[in-house]
């Protein structure tokens, strides 16, 4: 426990020094105090369950999500600038069977981050999504987004809701 706190403190302190770029007494003591405090806060259990994250999954997921965000942004610009304003908003529930709370959170955040779709309500099994037109929710309805999220959190048994 203490070892973990010290390790995290050292890491945060390094980041502090890199970002502040000042090495006088005042900056270093403030940085050390904050690093220690944040490292201590970090030991509080937030979810209570362990998770495994595939870093390869993360490194492929982020660029993919970004390309989707770019594509739907352009779609959104077209919708807004169209003189007829051809929007068709819908509110629908989406069942999900992702293994972990963190995975559902990532799915919900990805949906909200993509222009054109917003997660309105979240539960471990279902997301309520508002979309501005049917084309915006294609990725979600076809299950592509969920499959990509699953690659970030590999092979874990489904936890109880």
């Amino acid at each position: 426990m203490t070892g973990r706190i010290l390790l995290k403190t050292a890491l945060f302190f390094l980041i502090w020094m890199a970002l502040s770029g000042k090495f006088n007494f005042l900056h270093l003591t403030i940085g050390l105090g904050l690093s220690l405090g944040i490292a201590w806060l970090n030991t509080w259990p937030l979810t209570g369950d362990k998770m495994r994250v595939s870093w390869v999954g993360v490194l492929t997921y982020v660029p993919w999500l970004f390309s989707r965000i770019l594509a739907s942004s352009i779609h959104m610009v077209r919708l807004i600038l169209d003189p007829k304003l051809p929007i068709d908003p819908q509110l629908f529930g989406h069942q999900t069977s992702l293994p972990h709370h963190a995975a559902v959170v990532l799915l919900g955040n990805s949906i909200t981050l993509t222009p054109g779709t917003i997660t309105v309500e979240v539960s471990p099994n279902e997301l309520t999504v508002h979309s501005i037109d049917p084309a915006s929710s294609n990725d979600l309805l076809s299950g592509t987004l969920e499959k990509k999220v699953a690659t970030v959190f590999p092979s874990q048994p489904r936890m109880k809701a």
């Binding site: 965000i69 942004s73 959104m76 908003p89 509110l91 909200t112 981050l113 222009p115 917003i118 508002h130």
Partner: peptide, 13 residues
């Protein structure tokens, strides 16, 4: 709700 989608454009792109 629809306006929030437009704001999402600011946040991201």
């Amino acid at each position: 709700f629809a306006r929030a989608h437009a704001v999402g454009l600011t946040d991201t792109m």
